[in-house]
Amino acid sequence: MTTEKKEQEKVDIHPNKEGYEPDEITAISPWKDAFRRLRKNRLSMTGFFIIVFFIIVGIFAPLLTSHGIDDQELVNRLQPPSSEHWFGTDDLGRDILTRIAYGARISLLVGFIAVTGALIFGTLLGIIAGYFGKWVDMVISRIFDILLAFPSILLAIAIVAILGPSLQNALVAIAIINIPIFGRLVRSKVLSLREEEFVMAAKAQGLKNGRIIFHHILPNSLAPIIVQATLGFGTAILEAAALGFLGLGAKQPTPEWGYMLSNARDFIQLAPWTLVFPGISIMLVVLGFNLIGDGLRDALDPKMKN
């Protein structure tokens, strides 16, 4: 670096009286501020890129490979990775890379839909319980407690068993078991926000309950919801994979990663690649979401920064 440049920097850091314009301070929204902090977090940006990578793979799957998800080449069963089949082939001679690429669509969509469903219902119930309290809170909280009393995967199995095994029903089940997680989170946040003076001040201005809830309480409880949603993405994908593995989710020939694992189980010694690649994909996506989630938590809660 030349001395000239260094000089330049110095001036920037310590502006002289003429150069310093206090009036130029621009408004910094707390959201923008959080986003800036997130961008500085290397780990969560890594997570972000992992997810972006899988999204791109999912979207451009047809361009990435010339095989179809159900192109069976029975002569090429259980082939190890080669230049033709990068990730090898499975027991029906299907290209694993192709199936993983198309599977990315399913897994990400599963995560998105399940989390969105759980988020919407959980947040609504949580807000109602927290804001109105009394018997409403009593009823909703007990429902959450009942849902949480079961191990989540057991509950999901029970729900799928009632609805019948299919990918859609697995989605519904995953959404339902995640509702109380969002609900309780939102409820506790609303309970503390309800006592905040700005809510009292908003009431003293004559605002309606609905407006206070959606304009003041909801935006202020958004931070933990976003964090939970990101982390929930990972869990939802894992749960979908687990249901797929148990044969309660996707059916043949859907290339769902969990279901691929389940199929590969029989060839674990004969053809480990059938198991390794879907497994690594699940791990990477879940890791990606968890990294983003952790980063978001730090970025949205400046008090935890140090």
Binding site: A27, S29, P30, W31, E196, E197, F198, M200, A201, A202, K203, A204, Q205, G206, L207, H215, H216, P219, N220
Partner: peptide, 30 residues
């Protein structure tokens, strides 16, 4: 009546404003 006829200000100015909205937005809202 609230806000329009009888207005109120509170003890804690640090927490009486919603941290996520601009000053203007909060006055305009009322």
């Amino acid at each position: 009546v609230r806000g329009n006829e009888i207005a109120m200000i509170f003890q804690e100015p640090m927490t009486s404003l919603d941290p996520l909205f601009t000053i203007g937005n909060q006055i305009i809202e009322g």
